[in-house]
């Protein structure tokens, strides 16, 4: 049974992630008074891209060719080492620093792949991506550290197993840290107000600029990995800060409840993201550091408040 749960855990992120993209797009379409495409459209897009031929730049090296595989691998590995619907699995790679730094591998190769083709778009996309992720790292580590200190463990499964909301004296810290984390979530998953995931306007794009030269299978993997990253951050945000409904022991009922609750949490988060994207304008690039530093400072206050 544990093996079965592990298999569900391993495939949960890549299987569900295209759905969130569809849901967010659907909600955004509704806001714009459009019908919008089906919420399963992203699955069809991935399928279509997988079966297309590819064009690769003659300037590209093996970094460009293998980066999609590495980045996708990272999202799968991290997706399997964080609590999704069950808190008792306790993987050996579930230390929060391990997770943060393994995700840094994907940032590293994504940016290198962006530079590899020698296109100006890719280069500037990489530069912007690295600027944002360098500044986001402090906020990310510190927001996770806040919940780790409250539950006195840096293992994300253990954190989600201890319902930190019961520590009512730390409620203010946890909420501050969550706001800080949510800002980082938007930054790392290239959402508004940091990046516009649906634009191809060269002045604004970050993530799309880096993957501009990709096509076919590799583009599919890149897009898919980016969707996986979104679900990973949503899982961290919902299960570490609000670990309600997560399965605490091995029983079918708890697991089914866990999965349903997690899907609801994902729906809730995607609604918030969609509302945000429909109501907020993208920030000017040099205002983004202010937002990231705000996140960092909120987390520092949260940590100081714990003692």
């Amino acid at each position: 049974m544990t093996i079965l749960i592990w298999i569900i855990q391993l495939f949960f992120v890549p299987v569900i992630s295209p759905l969130i993209i569809g849901v967010i797009k659907k909600i955004k379409a509704k806001f714009q008074n459009r019908q919008g495409s089906s919420i399963f459209q992203f699955y069809k897009d991935l399928w279509k891209l997988m079966y297309k031929d590819e064009v690769v730049s003659k300037d590209a090296s093996w970094i460009f060719l293998y980066a999609p595989f590495i980045i996708f691998t990272v999202t799968i590995a991290v997706g399997a080492s964080i609590p999704l619907f069950a808190s008792f699995l306790n993987g050996p790679t579930s230390d929060l620093l391990v997770i943060v730094y393994i995700m840094a591998i994907s940032t590293f190769f994504l940016s290198l792949a962006g530079m590899d083709t020698g296109s100006a778009f890719g280069g500037f996309g990489s530069s912007r991506e690295m600027t944002i992720s360098a500044l986001a790292e402090g906020g990310l580590i510190f927001s996770l550290l806040t919940v780790a200190l409250v539950s006195s463990s840096t293992n994300v499964f253990i954190i989600s197993g201890i319902n930190i909301l019961n520590h009512s004296q730390h409620l203010l810290s946890i909420m501050l840290a969550f706001i800080g984390f949510f800002i980082i979530l938007l930054a790392e998953t290239t959402r508004f107000p940091f990046d516009n995931p649906s634009t191809h306007l060269e002045l604004t794009m970050i993530h799309e600029a880096m993957i501009l030269e990709y096509s076919g299978k590799r583009l599919a993997l890149m897009e898919w990995a980016s969707a996986n990253k979104l679900i990973i951050f949503i899982a961290l945000g919902s299960n570490l800060f609000f670990p309600l409904g997560i399965a605490q022991n091995i029983s079918w009922l708890a697991l089914v409840i866990g999965i349903i609750v997690f899907l609801l949490k994902i729906l809730f988060f995607s609604t918030i993201i969609a509302i945000l994207e429909s109501s907020v304008a993208k920030f000017r690039f040099f205002r983004l550091p202010d937002l990231l530093i705000t996140s960092f400072i909120l987390n520092v206050i949260a940590i100081v408040l714990i003692n």
Binding site: M50, Y51, K52, D53, E54, V55, V56, S57, K58, D59, T117, G118, S119, L212, E213, G216, K217
Partner: peptide, 13 residues
């Protein structure tokens, strides 16, 4: 998946 995929080498756009 799609093991017969063809890869074309072209200039960067």
């Amino acid at each position: 998946i799609n093991k017969n995929q063809k890869i074309k080498i072209e200039n960067t756009w």
